[in-house]
Design a protein around this nucleic acid. Structure first.
Lengths: 245, 245
DNA sequence: CGTGGTCTTGAGTTCCGTCAACTAGCGTGG
DNA sequence: CCACGCTAGTTGACGGAACTCAAGACCACG
């Protein structure tokens, strides 16, 4: 019983037209699904690396802790994302996966990926491109962490979320839901919850954003792009080199 | 006129035995070579993304600048590394490549990579694994930048370099050559040259390291591994899923 | 023997962290 | 329905790690 369209198919279709066969292969990844409540850990760093996951709905994130408890969130996962790709080359997971809110995930074994890699060169090229794109995005995050102030980092994060969410929701303009707590945002940006709070208030006071509960509205997108030298890595990719199946 | 063994072949052989055909394919990547003096830019961020490069000898690094000049070095390249992999999914380069010292590079077109991807599944799996491994390493760097003190960051960097250099130089113990300036190290670790200097002196004073010109000796590797919760991502990879050609 | 780049040193500053108290919202249960 | 407890967010005082600026030392090299 295939749904009208999965988030994964929507997201991938944004970059290239998918054949029915491709869609069928992707649907197989979403065959089984499981729901989890908010704040649940799905797997832990060091666990044997069995499954990957497609996010069906809800937000989640991957993080690592230092032994003394300092935490770094390394990736925020949205519906349509594939979770765990960077770890497939390793025997054990390097990060812990945790839900932000109520989440539905589709686990699938590594071997399903193998099958796609062997049988569908064009779809493989797309999946690899997305993994590489995520690598480039991580480089952008690294730049933000290494060289940007708190205000710039938050601005960068909001712009990045906007760009990502626009891929699956074309009608979205300047407002979106940010279900993460300020402590989680702090762990993502390498700051503290207290300083996140103060910087959000400052951004609001200076007219960059508005907030209402978990809704965020970006008012000065242009200025914030300028401020952070932001580049949208999501809108387009180079598919010109993709093989024809 | 193939050399006895290239760095690239040495590095890849560490993870799986290479067939003569594989070695021949890799040798093709190193067919043409060019030398560059220290401090030279090879390509710039935004340039059209034509070639990849194999590093033959010498160190180089990739970086991005903010418009006001703040710099973040995102990857240090050693002999045997392939430079530019994360960018293949994009039309334009996202980073600038610069030599640390006198360097010899082998440029090769994207299309050579295509050929390997199409014709050699096993070698493809290895190259993809290395790209994913580099992604995991970047996550480690992100954690260091987000959550570690200057002392911990430098320790992490030294351990990472040790682990990487040991792959190609099995006889290496605790001493290696670090040709980067302290300003470059600062741009890599998200600090300033002044603070790098002070922190290096402190590490020396506290008996963690010794320095002599550009030679660094790591004296308390065990403690530094503990301090930074360091994981060697280079020593082994999961090759169990690789296809047999 | 000058010259330019790298490293070191010190004084003063700042951004962000720590700690702790307080407020607001929300679900639970008596 | 209100007391309660819990979590998230805000606020303020204070502290400290890392930055800035500037001067000086130490090379390597022409």
């Amino acid at each position: 019983m295939p749904e009208a369209s999965s988030c994964l198919v929507t997201k991938l279709s944004h970059y290239m037209p998918l054949s029915d066969l491709d869609k069928e292969r992707l649907a197989r990844l979403e065959k089984s699904e499981r729901s989890f409540p908010a704040g649940q850990e799905i797997y832990q760093g060091g666990d044997e690396n069995r499954n990957l996951y497609v996010v069906k709905h809800g937000w989640a994130f991957s993080y690592t802790d230092l032994p003394d408890g300092r935490r770094q969130i390394v990736k925020i996962h949205h519906p349509g994302d594939i979770v765990g790709f960077p770890d497939v080359a390793l025997k054990h997971s390097t990060t812990t996966l945790r839900t932000v809110e109520s989440v539905c995930l589709c686990p699938f074994p590594k071997s399903s990926l193998d099958e796609i890699l062997r049988k569908s060169p064009r779809l493989s090229a797309l999946l690899i491109s997305i993994a590489l794109r995520d690598h480039v995005v991580l480089i952008d995050v690294l730049r933000a962490m290494g060289r940007m102030s708190a205000q710039e980092r938050i601005s960068y994060m909001l712009l990045d979320l906007l760009a990502r969410l626009r891929i699956t929701n074309r009608s979205m303009t300047d407002t979106f839901r940010l279900p993460m707590t300020q402590s989680q945002i702090a762990d993502y940006l390498g700051l503290t919850n207290v300083y996140i709070s103060k910087t959000f208030l400052r951004l609001e006071r200076e007219g960059f954003i508005q907030r209402d509960h978990d809704q965020v509205r970006v008012l000065k997108e242009r200025e914030m792009i300028e401020l952070t030298d932001f580049h949208d890595r999501y809108a387009e990719m180079d598919t010109s080199w993709f093989p024809q199946d």
